[in-house]
Amino acid sequence: MESLLFCCLILSCLSGVVRSAPLEEEITTPPPPPRPYAFGYAAGRYPGHIDRTHSEVSDGSGIVQGSYSYVDPRYQIRTVEYIADRSGFHPILNDAVPDLPSDTPVVAAAKENHLRRYAAIANAHQVAPGQAVVPADTKAVQFAKNRHFTLFQQIAEEHARLAAERKAEGLEIDPNSLEHY
């Protein structure tokens, strides 16, 4: 029995040595492939009002490029572009207001023509102070007005006739009463 116990002890020691040999080798797993991404959003404090944006792109290798914008307390739009890599976060504040593009000769000529026509129309519509301008009715408006006045006159005559009949019958209409409605 003792020899059996001794054999089991030796086998268990040898099996531990055999098992530990492969653990001494370092098993490495290859790194996962790069996982690039891109996102962007625009948000505001109430519907239809955008007061901040953010967009970001990464190629998955650890370098991230992006920008964000916001409205500061003085109602100025601030934009920050940045690069984040292994050595840190590198912001670039963009305070410069971009120059407006200059007009091409065709656009400049069109603007000049527009302003000239606008001034001519404005001068033609000038009215002396205190003088009222009453627009003239078109034929359709005049027809509708005449029709309205004719119908109004017919209704007024009908009401006068009914009031006279009631008065002749001795039925006075109390204007404050709702019975006749």
Rank of each mutant, 00 (worst) to 15 (best):
D51I: 09
D51Y: 09
R52I: 12
T53F: 12
S55K: 04
S55P: 00
E56I: 15
D59P: 00
G62V: 01
G62D: 03
I63V: 13
Q65S: 09
Q65T: 15
G66E: 02
G66V: 08
G66I: 00
S67K: 06
Y68H: 12
S69W: 05
S69N: 07
Y70H: 13
V71A: 06
V71C: 03
D72A: 02
P73V: 14
R74H: 13
R74L: 15
Q76T: 10
Q76L: 05
R78H: 08
T79N: 08
V80D: 03
V80G: 08
V80M: 12
E81Y: 12
E81C: 12
Y82P: 08
I83C: 14
I83W: 00
D85V: 00
R86F: 07
R86L: 04
S87C: 05
G88I: 06
G88A: 07
H90T: 10
P91L: 00
P91Y: 03
I92D: 14
L93V: 12
N94D: 12
D95G: 01
V97Q: 12
V97I: 04
D99W: 06
D99T: 11
D103T: 11
D103I: 02
P105D: 12
P105G: 10
V107F: 11
V107M: 15
V107I: 15
A108V: 03
A108L: 05
A108W: 06
A108R: 13
A109I: 05
A109K: 13
A110E: 04
K111V: 15
N113G: 07
N113T: 13
N113P: 00
L115P: 00
R116W: 10
R116Y: 13
R116Q: 10
R116K: 15
R116S: 12
R117T: 02
R117Y: 06
